[in-house]
Design a protein around this nucleic acid. Structure first.
Lengths: 342, 342
DNA sequence: GCCGGGTGTGAGAGCGTTCTCACCGCGTCG
DNA sequence: CGACGCGGTGAGAACGCTCTCACACCCGGC
């Protein structure tokens, strides 16, 4: 079936003004509810808006206000696996909840690979958004550079790699990992491995650093075979765990740098006949939903995600408001959540 | 640390024109590479653009062209679990690949719950995008109505619930499910259950319809206890499979309406000591990546996702181009991919 | 040498808003 | 009774771009 019809012309302020018997300026005042309008005029305008189904044209408005009331969450990820991470879903949920009763809209931009990153950068530079939250950064990402070059306010989720002066919000990954590992040490474990996150991401790096710091503090020697790199996915966690197990059969504990990976690790441990936590104690990271429901329930490091998404928005709004570039970082504390796995 | 600096004023066409010693019109022509410009002028303009780091202001441009060169992928999902579905990730990948070498940008808008749906609808109506692709529709979704009301071109991913006249692209879910179930029948199985998708989504509904059709065609009675509803997630698949198994212990095959659910089902079957495919044959749906890598590799129904994302974009661009509303539907064939599980 | 037909260019009118002013009427104060 | 203040209003200039014209120029053909 195929029907064709012309696009109906959208009404303008001018027409609303004419119908309401007032000037453009007054209609504009009503739309932006300025207090200086008589009730009579206000009612007339509202009626006209209703009658014409008037919707303000954002382009025209933005052109003069220089604001779009839109902020972008940019994901810089070569594949699309980031979507699958519950961590990401919680960030999105947190951000949109935080923005729910503001005027601001949230759009997600996915940039896989160089070309798309440039496209995203162009999109941002052309003035489509008032600010950008950048997430899932890898070491060689172009996006921070591309975006820092433009005057659009920018906040990173996660400490920048090169210590550049950009506002960011991050969890205390080092501290959390350290606490997790220390907990394993206090359980009397001595052959503690780690399934690390991708080492081209700060979160992966920092959690490994925390693990090492805890071991070093306890005077334990650094054994490279105790470290297996994962990619924050369940499948990657399984692979890393399997490798760890094959290289260090007498492993008695493992700190896994994310809960999805920990789920994969648990599966491998079970398949290998290891009891958790009796034979091998496991601590995860994130306190994802799955941590409470897996078997056994996962002891894990919780990040205050609400606080973090709140801080991301606050920092960004601050920057947008001030029109300047206050470079501020916020580090959020983590907490060990004890369940059955360690 | 805190530094503050004013936002630098962005250069305008006017300034580029002045620097290049030409008029605004000529600069505009160069920017939009119109052929009618002398090489000399072109070079001068390019140099000036370079020197000033000029980036065109999209709002101003859109105001007159009435195009934004942006299309939105709108996810209507009350929770954010859709992100976790590999199906969704593939859609996003497909769409951005398809748009990679066009001028068009893709933005994702997540709408959970009524308020956010209205916010998204407002965003669209205000003219931020040239078109909308709507995905993950539930029965009582407001978004199709909200969006159909505005003049913005719209394409649905998935047949609309109420048979309304909206262009859409869908896989042949009924046919695929029928083929899957028929395959199980041909293996000689007689107690074939199904883990259905959510029944407030057409994909869930249609796949159940296909399953039933195949059984009916084979003269098998409809047994309601053979149907367990899942939610397209792995956990949901596990739960549904467990229920199926407890109610029909002598089950010898199951058609699972999505691969993530099938993975959950496989896990439960294994835990219950059932061998796959010997005791229970399993067919999934989607041909997700995980289908090839799980144990045993999953026989599943493949959807031509490339074709579907391509069709989504084509239909949308067609509508945008024509300025009208050609209501066209496209149904894409599915194919059974035989692996080890059935 | 004059005219037609390209080809490159610029002037200027929008696009639909917001926002700064100036203005008008009215009540209040000196 | 005139000056003043103030709430409500409208005229008109932006905002930065595109696009339609009209014009100036140069070529070849008669």
């Amino acid at each position: 079936m195929t029907t064709t019809g012309a696009r109906p012309p959208t009404p303008t302020l001018e027409q609303v003004a004419a119908l309401a018997g007032v000037s453009r300026a007054t209609v504009s005042r009503v739309i932006n509810d300025s207090p200086r309008v008589s009730p009579a005029a206000r009612d007339a305008v509202h009626a006209a808006v209703e009658a014409l189904r008037y919707v303000p044209n954002r382009m025209a408005r933005s052109l003069v206000t220089r604001r779009t009331d839109t902020i972008a969450l940019v994901l810089s990820e070569s594949n699309t696996q980031i979507f699958a991470d519950p961590f990401f879903a919680r960030i999105v949920r947190g951000l949109s909840a935080r923005l729910a009763d503001t005027e601001l809209n949230l759009v997600l931009l996915a940039a896989r690979g160089g070309r798309e990153q440039e496209k995203v950068a162009r999109y941002v530079q052309q003035g489509h958004v008032d600010g950008v939250i950048l997430i899932s950064l890898h070491r060689d990402d172009l996006l921070p550079d591309l975006l820092a070059r433009s005057p659009v306010p920018l906040v990173l989720s996660g400490r920048p790699f090169d210590g550049r002066a950009v506002p960011y919000v991050d969890a205390d990954n080092v501290g959390g990992a350290e606490a997790a590992t220390t907990h394993l040490l206090q359980l009397g474990r001595s052959r503690i491995g780690t399934v690390a996150g991708p080492l081209d991401m700060v979160a992966g790096l920092d959690r490994l650093t925390g693990y090492r710091a805890a071991l070093a503090a306890a005077g334990a020697p650094a054994r490279p075979e105790l470290v297996a790199e994962g990619d924050f996915t369940e499948a990657g966690g399984s692979r890393a765990m399997a490798r760890l197990l094959s290289e260090v059969p007498d492993l008695d504990a493992v700190f896994v740098a994310s809960d999805p990976m920990a789920v994969g690790a648990l599966r491998v441990l079970r398949a290998a006949g290891r009891r958790v936590p009796d034979d091998v104690a496991v601590v995860g990271f994130d306190d994802a939903e799955v941590a409470a429901s897996c078997d056994p329930p996962l002891t894990t490091v919780a990040q205050p995600l609400e606080e973090m998404t709140g801080a991301l928005v606050d920092l960004l709004l601050e920057q947008i408001g001030s029109g300047g570039s206050a470079v501020e970082a916020r580090l959020c504390g983590t907490a060990l959540v004890r369940r059955a796995s360690a």
